[in-house]
């Protein structure tokens, strides 16, 4: 990190960790899935962030997950990390992770979240109430996709 960057106070770097910046700049799994079985659209009416999520599920297992859309670093990194994390998880596990992730951001960031692994880099968002919805957009969208809800997932 450059000297100027060092001058920024720590809490900010805790929010914008290198991993998050990396995933925001080079999102993984950005695109579309060839054999889509589940999909949903996510929308945050407050800021206009949009996200389209496609998932391929075979024998109750997530084979592939990809997303497209526009959003801030937090929302893009969250979607990118999520799609990486989902691969080879079964649907039950994915549903459990959705709950745990949203809980980490809205309830208890300090509690250990061993199931969340790398996703805990986003725990710092808890301290920025205005940004929590950025981080949870992809997850609400996943929840809608898994439930095969036809409607657009919304953070509101």
């Amino acid at each position: 990190m450059s000297q100027l960057g060092e001058q920024l106070r720590d809490p900010l770097r805790e929010l914008y960790q290198e991993v998050i910046i990396d995933h925001a700049r080079n999102p993984r799994n950005f695109g579309t899935v060839s054999n889509v079985t589940h999909h949903a659209e996510g929308f945050n009416p407050l800021c206009g962030d949009q996200l389209s999520l496609e998932v391929e599920i075979e024998n109750n297992k997530i084979k592939d997950a990809k997303f497209k859309g526009t959003g801030c670093a937090i929302s893009t990194a969250s979607a990118s990390l999520m799609t990486q994390f989902l691969k080879d998880k079964n649907v039950g596990e994915a549903e459990q992770i959705v709950k745990e992730f949203i809980d980490m951001l809205t309830q208890s960031p300090k509690i250990e979240h061993p199931n969340l692994g790398k996703l805990t880099v986003l725990a710092g968002v808890h301290d920025y109430p205005a940004r929590v919805k950025c981080a949870t957009l992809a997850w609400h969208t996943l929840d809608a996709a898994l439930k095969r809800e036809a409607k657009i997932a919304s953070t509101e």
Binding site: P11, L12, Y16, C47, G48, I74, R131, C134
Partner: peptide, 27 residues
């Protein structure tokens, strides 16, 4: 370039600078 307005807004806020970021009710 390459930085979403909401990230700009959060970082500016850390510097004590209040700006508006978003669609400003003009989608």
């Amino acid at each position: 370039d390459g930085i979403h307005p909401h990230d700009v807004g959060t970082i500016l806020d850390h510097e004590g600078i209040a700006v508006r970021t978003g669609h400003h009710c003009t989608m």
